[in-house]
Simulated assay, not measured.
Amino acid sequence: MDLNADVGESFGGWTLGDDAAILGAVTSANVACGFHAGDAATARRACALAAAGGVSVGAHVSYRDLAGFGRRFLDVDPAELVDEVIYQVGALQAIAAAAGTRVRYVKPHGALYTAIAHHRPQARAVVEAVRTLDADLPLLVLPGTVVEEEAAAVGVTAVVEAFADRAYEADGTLVSRGQPGAVLTDPAQVAARVVRLATEGTVEAVDGATVAVAAQSVCVHGDTPGAVGIATAVRAALEAAGVPLRPFR
């Protein structure tokens, strides 16, 4: 199982998360590309830390929305979105190279990630950006979504992920962040959920239903309260359960 986390989300004098600590627990790092968070120095530092720890680097692309942390849907023209995703991935490719590593995958962030699960024009735009820049770069996506379909249609690899610290609806979608209990912060609870995901391929929804999730990667959000403790607990629980931890790419 791959364990990924969002990093590089500090900006200027504003610090978010503890990249050095969380990179000691995960196997893949989704590095912010400057559109929802992050800046050049933060991205290079995150990439250097990932390279030193043998952690795979992914481009965490977003709507151009620093004020909203990329968590607001933007009705971006698909052609413009293609260019903006290419711009973000390309920038991080240069930063990663300077830090002694390379971008191995792409993961959309926040509202863009949610939108391309059902918004076909934007899903197609994200896939087209990846295919145009480097068709060998996989996309991290939710299962059963239109972006997964669009990727398959043009030969871009879609890698299914699950979320350690987010609650699920019975239909397999994530509970909206505006709802109570949407974000899980108890390390023991989260760790147990991830072990179940890794060993049984299921997760319990908020209504008690069992949801099948055949994930190759599990995400811990870097801005979740106690993220380092959660990631550390998840890693320890997976190792104790005999689940090998390795990057998916």
Results as ranks from 00 to 15, higher is better:
D19L: 00
G222L: 05
E204M: 07
V82M: 03
G24A: 14
R64K: 04
E239F: 00
A240K: 07
A21N: 11
T145D: 13
A152Q: 10
N30C: 02
G178I: 11
P138Y: 10
V243C: 07
E84K: 04
D186T: 09
H109W: 01
I116D: 09
E200L: 11
Q88W: 01
L66S: 11
L92K: 00
E150N: 07
D39Q: 05
A37L: 01
G12A: 01
M1A: 13
A96R: 03
V160Y: 09
D2V: 03
D223L: 08
L81C: 03
L197T: 08
G144Y: 02
P225T: 14
A214W: 01
V127G: 12
Y63G: 03
A227E: 05
E149M: 04
I230W: 09
N4A: 03
L112Q: 13
A214G: 08
H60A: 04
P121I: 09
E84W: 01
V82T: 02
D171W: 02
L112E: 11
V89Q: 11
D136F: 02
M1H: 09
R104M: 04
V127T: 05
S28N: 03
R45K: 14
A79N: 07
G100T: 12
V213D: 09
H221D: 13
P187R: 13
G229F: 12
L184I: 04
A20Y: 03
V85R: 08
G178T: 15
T202A: 02
L184W: 05
V26P: 07
A125T: 05
L245C: 04
S176C: 03
I22T: 02
V159H: 04
T157V: 09
V190S: 12
G110Y: 11
R193Q: 15
G226S: 13
H221I: 12
L3Q: 11
V211L: 11
G24V: 01
L112R: 07
A94R: 12
Q179K: 14
V160H: 00
D136Q: 10
G144L: 10
S28Q: 12
T114K: 07
E239V: 15
L238F: 08
A214E: 14
A182P: 10
G181T: 08
D134A: 14
A182F: 02
S176M: 00
G242M: 09
V31H: 13
E161V: 05
V194K: 12
A99D: 06
L197H: 04
V218T: 09
A192D: 15
G17H: 12
A50P: 02
Y105T: 01
G53Y: 09
R45S: 15
P78Q: 10
V211W: 02
V26N: 11
A40G: 08
A191T: 08
A52C: 01
A20L: 06
N4F: 10
T101D: 06
R102D: 14
A151F: 10
R124I: 06
P143Y: 06
A32S: 08
A151L: 10
V194Y: 12
Q122S: 14
L66F: 02
E169N: 15
A236E: 15
A241C: 00
A37R: 00
T42L: 01
E149F: 04
L133P: 05
A164S: 07
R249T: 15
A50Q: 06
D207V: 07
G222H: 12
R166N: 09
F163M: 06
A5G: 05
E80I: 06
G24H: 00
L174S: 10
A227L: 08
A46S: 15
T224P: 05
A152E: 14
V211N: 06
S56N: 01
A241M: 00
